[in-house]
Each structure stands twice: as structure tokens, then as C-alpha cells.
Amino acid sequence: MTSSTPDRSALGAFLRARRARVTPGEVGLPAGGRRRTPGLRREEVAQLAGVGVTWYTWLEQGRARNASDQVLDAVARVLRLDGAEHRHLMMLAGRGTATEPGPPMDLRPEHTAVLAKLLPYPAAVQTDCYDLVAANRAYRYLFADLDAYPVEERNCAWLMFTEPSWRDSLLDEESVLRDIAARLRARQPEHRDDPRWNALITRLRQESPDFVRLWESYEVKGERSQLRRYVSPRVGALDVQFQSLWLDRARGERIIVMTPTDAATTQRLERLESLVGAAPAWTAFGDSAAGGSAARA
């Protein structure tokens, strides 16, 4: 990893977006009558953070240099940033470390063994930008035949935003798409020199108006376990707990797994296993075959 350099333009855009979402009442201020814009005024943020109005204005305009940690922490407090948002703010301000572009993930036999053992639960090995490195058969056939897609399209963000069969599986479409965009936004500053990340964001912006809308809303979220509701064309409604089992948290490499939250979902996943059980237990995508050997087992 290398030291991160400030991205003052993105920092200003993030602060403006967050300021628009905080009401006067949330920070103990009177509403003060009708406002021309939503959220707090710049002078209110400056006053509550204990900084000059001009300096805070420069911060939002990308003109301020060398903001101290104390000032950034004060602004974060006023804007009611959560942990993921605070971390994002500090990365944009040049704190922390940027991740150097590295080689593809090293898919190992112990990773694929876990994928096989998790059956009939859908599971996949995934990178920080949602590239799918390998998947078990429950995951591969959950929405469509994942093996049929070109390697460059085996990315969960790409599939959810642009592929109808995947998108139609979402019962809470707006919530899931918003979450994906927000998590990509949260980690993008530390990867802004990574061609893999830049190519994905560029393609999504070109092909998905919904991604553009959500990306430009500047929401930021961290990783967390969450309830997801899907409809599989093969077995019907599925309520699962979607979680990450970390392989390398610093690099964002993980095994994602969907565990059923009710008996009906358990039975439907068992039904899916009976329908596709003749397929290989797992498949590796691209050039990352486990241990450098065959891509299927």
C-alpha cells in the first residue's frame, strides 16, 4: 500500500452531499423558516465545527489544503457521519493508505473446499469490486446460468445493474442497488489508481442510468451482514442472510454466502440442489484456477 493523496474535488462533493441531508433539528438548531436548499447552511456547519466560514467554503470548493485531523473530525461530527462515512472522509483528505494495483486473487484449494462444503447454500469467492473469482453450483444457478456469461461480465455489480435476469430476482431492487453503489463509492478512493476499478465504474456509468443516479447521490456504506429477499426462477422466493466470510479484509477478498432465514427457504435451496446436483460443485472463473490446476471440481 502507498500513502493516499488528497482528492479535494471529491472531498468537496461528499461534504456538500452530506450537508444536504442533515436537518437543523438534528444538530440542535432552529429551522429558521423556509430554506432555499435542503439541509444545513455552510455557515452553520462552520459555526458548529468551530472553523471559519470562508475556510469551510474553500473545503467544499476543493480549495482548502492541509486540513487537520481535528478539523475533519469536527466536521464529521456536525455532519453526523457514521464509521464508514468518516473513514471515507479521511481517505478523500489524504489520510490512510491507497491500495496498490496487484495481481489477481490467488484462489486456493481451501477456498474452493469451503464453497463445496457450504452446499446447498449459495456461496462465491468475490473481490472488493464484486468480481466473481469462483462460485459453487447453488450460486451459479440461483438466478441464471452464470457459466454462460463472458468472464468480463461475471461481476455482481455489473450483473445486478445491467442483466435483467439478475435484476428481476431482487424483491427490494432499489435498496440492493443503492447498497451496491454505496459500498463501491466507499472504497473507490483507495482504488482510484487501479485500472480494474476504473474500468468497472466507467462501464457502469456508461450502461446504467440507475448506477449514475445512485453514484452521484454520494451515499457511502460499509460491509455488513444483511437480509436479502430474492426470487429464483427455478425454486421461487428466498429469504437469506447475506454475509461475508473474510479471506483478506485489507484487500476486500471474501467468500460471500447466503444462509436461509426460514424453513421454506431451506427447502427451496435443497430443491435447487436436487435440480442442479449433476453440475460441478464449484467453478473458478478466468485464469484463477485453484492451485493453478483445473477450473472445475
Score class of each variant (00 low, 15 high):
L159D: 03
M160E: 07
A199H: 01
W197D: 04
R205D: 05
L177G: 04
S165R: 14
W158M: 00
P164I: 04
P164T: 01
I180L: 09
N198I: 12
W197G: 04
D168V: 11
R183S: 11
E173P: 10
V176T: 12
R187V: 14
R178V: 11
H191S: 01
L200S: 00
I180W: 06
F161E: 00
E174P: 12
L184F: 07
D179N: 15
L177W: 06
F161I: 02
Q188C: 11
D172N: 10
A157W: 03
R185F: 08
A182I: 10
D168E: 13
R203D: 07
F161T: 00
R187S: 14
L170H: 01
R196Q: 11
L200K: 05
S165H: 13
R185L: 10
T162P: 04
S169F: 03
Q206Y: 02
P189L: 05
R167W: 01
T162Q: 03
A182S: 12
D194V: 09
R205S: 15
W197E: 05
S175P: 09
R178I: 06
D168K: 09
Q206G: 12
Q188N: 12
I201H: 00
E190S: 15
W166L: 03
E163G: 03
A181C: 09
S175E: 11
R185V: 08
L184E: 07
S169R: 04
T162M: 03
P195R: 00
W158Q: 01
R187H: 15
Q188M: 13
E174K: 12
P164V: 04
V176D: 08
R183H: 13
F161N: 00
R192T: 09
D179P: 07
D193L: 10
Q188V: 15
W197V: 10
E190F: 06
A157F: 07
E163H: 12
V176C: 03
R196S: 11
P164Q: 02
S165I: 14
L177F: 06
A186P: 15
P195M: 06
R196L: 11
D172G: 00
L204R: 05
W166E: 06
P189I: 01
L177T: 04
I180P: 04
L200F: 02
D193W: 05
I201T: 06
W158K: 01
M160L: 13
T162L: 07
M160G: 05
L204F: 00
N198R: 14
E173H: 09
A181P: 13
L159W: 01
T202V: 08
L170M: 07
R167N: 11
D172P: 08
V176Q: 11
R203W: 00
E174S: 15
I201P: 00
L184R: 02
E163D: 14
Q206R: 13
E173D: 14
A181K: 07
S169L: 05
S165Q: 15
Q188P: 08
R196I: 11
H191C: 05
R196D: 10
A181G: 10
W158G: 01
D179W: 14
R187D: 12
R196Y: 08
T162D: 01
R203H: 02
S165P: 07
D193P: 08
S165Y: 09
F161V: 02
A181I: 11
D194L: 02
A157K: 03
W166A: 10
R205V: 05
R185Y: 07
A157Y: 06
